[in-house]
């Protein structure tokens, strides 16, 4: 009776621990074919290992308890069957299976007949991701910290780095792939269900490595095309007076020397800088500063005023010299860029 209670408690704890394995960023909650193969592989190793461990412990118990029986059994048979034959067969099978999984998760190979993959370039830098979509007709659209992809279609992600080594990891879709300065690595991913999942840098890249995340938004095919078409447009031109004032303040504060807002130029100012994320449609993104803050007018104002306190060591200075009205008007303007 007592044993049953202990077992119940252990199972409850295990369920609690495993509950953490579902959700936006989880190896054991696959949302695409590559991650599904990897999860299967992980479970096979887990349960296989558990079975072998249990069997070994049982053998040990038998050896300790039934000493008469073990004395009569010639040890050489045990060694040959369990110590030699079993590992050879198991490891051989696992080697073949591993090689097969390695091929199955490489979504980029051997599908020349099907729909061509969508190409997306991701450039990692301290501490955010620049994301450029290729529309297939020679055009590109640049955004940041968010990967919008169509469901059911392969997406070829070309990975490069502008400074140090980073690693691109969306656990619900695939394994990790490093971004290495001076070369381009490619990983092909695919999502099977619409929804939002999270990825993050998986190679220590500096002080704010932990705040270098991104979201993957999987859309139905038509919704993705609509999304891409909207992102191809230049930035929305403000009409309301306070947004116009915000746009002017944005330019006057010099934001355009690091950030692009496509289509925005006024007098001596233009938003064409290449150091920070493209802000053309920043209001429509899920997060700010690579997953550091939720998006919204409040967090935008906070980030502009105090980027160095919220994410120390990132490239954006804190603009707390701006007076409060200027600060909030810039935040409202950026929030309106959907």
């Amino acid at each position: 009776m007592r044993g049953r209670h202990v077992l119940g408690a252990v199972l409850a704890l295990a369920a609690l621990a495993l509950a953490g394995c579902t959700g936006q960023q989880a190896v054991l909650d696959p949302r695409g074919p590559a991650a599904a193969h990897l999860a299967e592989f992980s479970w096979l190793l887990f349960w296989g290992g558990a079975a072998i461990f249990a069997f070994t412990m049982a053998m040990l118990a038998i050896g300790l308890v039934f000493t008469d029986w073990t004395k009569r059994t010639p040890p050489i048979r045990l060694v040959v069957w369990l110590g030699l034959a079993f590992p050879v067969v198991t490891l051989l099978a696992l080697t073949v299976y591993t090689a097969a999984v390695g091929r199955w998760v490489d979504l980029g190979r051997g599908q020349d007949g099907g729909e061509p993959p969508l190409r997306v370039d991701v450039v990692g830098q301290q501490y955010w991701w620049e994301v450029t979509y290729h529309d297939g007709q020679g055009g590109t659209v640049t955004s940041a910290n968010e990967l919008n992809i169509p469901v059911g279609r392969r997406v070829e992600v070309h990975l490069a780095s502008r400074d140090v080594i980073h690693s691109f990891w969306v656990p619900s879709l695939h394994g990790k792939m490093d971004l290495i300065p001076g070369r381009t690595n490619t990983i092909t991913i695919q999502a099977d269900t619409p929804g939002v999942i999270r990825g993050q840098c998986a190679e220590f890249c500096g002080e704010q490595h932990a705040l270098m995340a991104f979201f993957v938004v999987a859309h139905e095919s038509a919704a993705f095309e609509a999304w891409l078409a909207a992102r191809r447009q230049p930035a929305r031109v403000p009409e309301m007076p306070d947004l116009v004032a915000g746009q002017r303040a944005f330019l006057a504060a010099g934001c355009g020397s690091c950030h692009v807002v496509r289509g925005l130029a006024e007098g001596p100012y233009a938003a064409v800088g290449q150091l920070g994320p493209d802000l053309t449609h920043v209001g429509s993104r899920l997060s700010l500063a690579a997953g550091t803050l939720p998006n919204g007018v409040g967090p935008l104002a906070a980030w502009i005023a105090d980027a160095q306190d919220l994410k120390p060591g990132n490239r954006m200075p804190s603009f707390h010299h701006l007076d409060s009205e200027t600060l909030t008007s810039i935040a409202r303007y950026l929030g309106s860029l959907e």
Binding site: P294, G296, G298, W303, A305, L310
Partner: peptide, 9 residues
Amino acid sequence: GGTYGCGAC
């Protein structure tokens, strides 16, 4: 929940 980012300020 962080929706409005109150904790950022």
